[in-house]
Design a protein around this nucleic acid. Sequence first.
DNA 1: TTTCATTATATGGTATGCCAGAAACCACCG
DNA 2: CGGTGGTTTCTGGCATACCATATAATGAAA
Lengths: 228, 228
Amino acid sequence: MIKAQLEIQPIEEVQSLKSRTYDALKTAIGGMKIYDPGVELRLDERALSLQFGVSRTPLREALAQLEQEGLVRIAPRRGIFIVRKTKAEILEMITVWAALESMAARLVTEVATDAEIAELHGLVDSFDSADIEEHMGEYSDANIRFHAAIVALSGCKLIGEITNGLFTHVRAIRQRTIFERDRARRSIVDHKEIVEALETRNGERAERLVREHTLKLRQHVEQFVQLD
Amino acid sequence: MIKAQLEIQPIEEVQSLKSRTYDALKTAIGGMKIYDPGVELRLDERALSLQFGVSRTPLREALAQLEQEGLVRIAPRRGIFIVRKTKAEILEMITVWAALESMAARLVTEVATDAEIAELHGLVDSFDSADIEEHMGEYSDANIRFHAAIVALSGCKLIGEITNGLFTHVRAIRQRTIFERDRARRSIVDHKEIVEALETRNGERAERLVREHTLKLRQHVEQFVQLD
DNA sequence: TTTCATTATATGGTATGCCAGAAACCACCG
DNA sequence: CGGTGGTTTCTGGCATACCATATAATGAAA
């Protein structure tokens, strides 16, 4: 008997306007260069409700969530403003990131399989310190994926959620970060060391390397990024 | 000319109904024994709006924020439910806590003054391992304040915000945690060691001690707390 | 008696309108 | 010309009404 397997796919769960508006707003804000001078940070409820084609109610609920998340600030009867993080706040975020990702690295040495760890090579080995300059974009992407992979392999979803939230904010200053060739080169070296520590199941060392690696970024941002 | 200085004080800023409702809901949920069996986890919008004396609009905005924070889950057209964290999620929270507080300890050794560190003694020394049994309540409070103090002295506000958020959730299972005399005794020993590491500005050691101390709690919860 | 279809109801989702406070505008007066 | 008081307007806060769907209730058929 031929099994005409029916291709079942979850019923298209039409999300509420609130959550769709939330996503749309978050994406829109993420795409703005909010740290460029002269950018309009104010959001107009009524204008937004027209642009999104929804009423103010679900829009306001979405805004309330974004406020809770720290992306916007709602000043009663004054306006709704996209939040520009101060440099100090960005540095704190990187500090928290260092704490979480180093813990993640420790967890990786405890719970990940050899095969999983081996896959990290793909995100590191392909970059030769020689032609880094020409592949800055690719490197930047792979860099992000490398860190995300460590968090994922740790198996701790909460760490993933929090670092994702932080990334939303830190990403906004990405364009203002000077990517020196030299820093990229050293970064790759760090990554290779980290992979090695993970492979040898050296939790202490992996934790320390990841922490120091991220704190280097912190140091770099503190020194070279101008925000306020 | 006599200056009759007018005593100016900031006008009492009446908060919005949304934020007051948010606070009230959060407090109310925090006061519920949500992990006891048979507790009603469903929230009725209309009933709540009557109880709080506000319309559904600000109430729903408050609920949207609580949803973002993970305290409630809003199931479209199904209902609004207080979230019971699974044991696995609680363990993840403690893991994150360990990561953040150990980083905080490291920061304390770098930025806190001797005087500030010295104040930690007040939260530790007063407890003698002899009469611990009779002062379990006080110890429990001082325990919380000790950990909060380390976070505060680190100067990293973000760590404080996140750990506070975690505490909101973990507090709910507090009543289900068995406080053995022995664990409390060992905990005090740990605390004294931590203070000593902070005083000697031994960042590596302070970080490790705090991490291990919190991971002991994780281990204990994993072993003795039944939730699901 | 059981089951299934139909209907009623309850509950969250959304739209809309009005209100209050803040800011912008303007006219009047010194 | 500048400042002050009043007025208008703009904007978010809140209440209410209606809508859509999930669930419960009901009744008819097997």
